[in-house]
Design a protein around this nucleic acid. Structure first.
Lengths: 226, 226
DNA sequence: TGCTGCCGAGTTGTGTACATCTTACGTGAA
DNA sequence: TTCACGTAAGATGTACACAACTCGGCAGCA
């Protein structure tokens, strides 16, 4: 095969990336709650591979601070601890503002349609929203808005910080420590504001709106710190 | 053994970190020049281990953009390409400024003595400095100044960006495309300015001085872009 | 009853043989 | 001479057996 792809059209790195994304999703949606012990061999069997590639994926998740492996003990999902993640959260606030300064890129009409779709989904949240489905929507919005900058290192760091800190919200939302209706309403308002700013082609404004909302969300979480 | 350390008092992760730091050093000092092919088994033998741990270290270096592994071909040291690293360089400029805002920490007298020592070494550069020894000094200075913030995620990202972009300077310095005497003089002046700012306990000023010099260094490199 | 020490189950870390892939080289035919 | 093709060498990727390590439980003793 001349294009270097495997049987299903996927290269080796694509399979690794798929496993990594799947596990990250499960951890951040609390399917794998903090403290849960993961089994290398069980996960390897589930993904139809052996321990060796799975260990590489888990090592990357450990670098990203989502799991922790200890010799002889196991691979444990890290605790979504507020005090340890406060620094990451504040860095995320500042880096979000930079998306409007470093290599901003004006999206095409396809993007605007995607955003409009996301806004509709956000409108549905007030009716039939669960903390988990809301987090899933928030992830989709994040991935979309990340495309507003072409600075690849910045996108990489922001993605890492996002998935590091996102569990803090979901943990407290499930424990009913947050006013969910207010959270949904604020989020919808943020998306509408971003939509307006995009129609003005003001990407710096989009970044500032995001920065403001991440900062405010941080402060709301701060009222329930552990 | 109750403390969990090995024979030489080093844990497993310490050995991995040591191998990673050694290889990173060799790459960034151009002992392993861009395009050079690394052999997993040769490196494993040199460090007295097998391919499995060495592959984990190389995978991390690949994440950091210093090498690239291709199935069936080899593990190649990446090219220090200006156009690809320009985004990383500009992000580094902005993040350096943040060290003065996010969790700055005033150093003790021991730190000031270390800095004074580094300034002395910088003074020697004008007399007997090579591009490589200058880069080594620059690395030591970078590691020292990184301690001026306690924000661990910020330190982590800055370290990554530093080692990603540092080779750009050394490559051009060796090709004699830079005025080395001027580079040494500017660097010494930067360190003296930082020393003064530290005596005023103005960490924001220290960050701005660094930011300015990284930005100016970027512009000097820009005159010789490939 | 409580404490101590040993043992075994289970986990991650390591070593190694094998699979898969790319590339260079040599060979033969046009 | 030149081009096409097969083949072998050598690289990374994978699978698996074994080593190193932690921890809970249980037996034995004071």
């Amino acid at each position: 095969m001349s294009d270097g792809t495997g049987d299903s059209g996927l290269t080796v790195k694509d399979r690794h990336a798929a496993m990594h994304a799947a596990l990250r999703q499960r951890i951040c949606l609390l399917d794998y709650p903090p403290g849960m012990q993961l089994s290398e061999i069980t996960l390897a069997n589930e993904f139809g591979t052996s321990r060796t590639p799975m260990r590489r994926v888990l090592a990357r998740l450990e670098e990203e601070g989502l799991v922790q492996s200890v010799h002889g003990v196991g691979t444990i999902v890290t605790d979504a601890n507020f005090t340890e993640l406060e620094q990451a959260y504040r860095l995320r606030v500042e880096l979000t503002a930079l998306t409007g300064l470093l290599d901003p890129v004006m999206p095409d009409t396809t993007f605007l349609a995607r955003l409009k779709n996301l806004i509709d989904r956000a409108g549905q949240m007030a009716v039939s929203g669960t903390p988990k489905s809301f987090t899933q929507l928030d992830m989709d919005v994040f991935q979309a808005l990340l495309e507003l900058t072409e600075n690849e290192p910045l996108r990489h760091v922001l993605e890492r910080l996002y998935y590091q800190t996102k569990r803090l919200w979901l943990v407290r939302a499930i424990k009913a420590e947050l006013d969910l209706e207010e959270e949904y309403r604020i989020f919808l308002h943020e998306l509408e504001a971003i939509h307006i700013a995009l129609q003005s082609a003001d990407l710096a404004a989009v970044a500032q709106i995001q920065r403001a909302h991440i900062s405010m969300s941080f402060n709301r979480l701060l009222q329930h710190r552990d």
